[in-house]
């Protein structure tokens, strides 16, 4: 099964790239695109034979041990 994990900087941390992207879009004439944030997406495969609990446990420990630095980042497992 394909899993997607979305990682973003925590909302309280200033994210200057969002502002820069917003400015560039606006320069291209694409207005009204606001509050841009940029994150990273990690995709991985987990064997289908795993139960939901096993899956969640594995993903959570992957995130906590390596993929995410919770001092600055938050994550969300997508679908």
């Amino acid at each position: 099964m394909r899993i997607k994990i979305l990682i973003r900087l925590k909302s309280q941390i200033l994210e200057p790239q969002g502002k820069v992207i917003e400015k560039s879009l606006s320069n291209l004439g694409l207005k009204n695109l606001n509050n841009i944030r940029q994150g990273k997406l990690i995709e991985l495969d987990i064997p289908d034979k795993f139960s939901k609990e096993e899956r969640d446990e594995l993903i959570t420990s992957a995130c906590k041990k390596l993929l995410v630095n919770e001092i600055i980042e938050e994550y969300e497992v997508l679908g």
Binding site: Q17, N69, I71
Partner: peptide
């Protein structure tokens, strides 16, 4: 910092 021996984290320079 990543090991946790020091507080905080180092993120991208403000001017990118």
């Amino acid at each position: 910092s990543e090991i946790g021996l020091l507080k905080g984290a180092l993120i991208q320079n403000k001017r990118l």
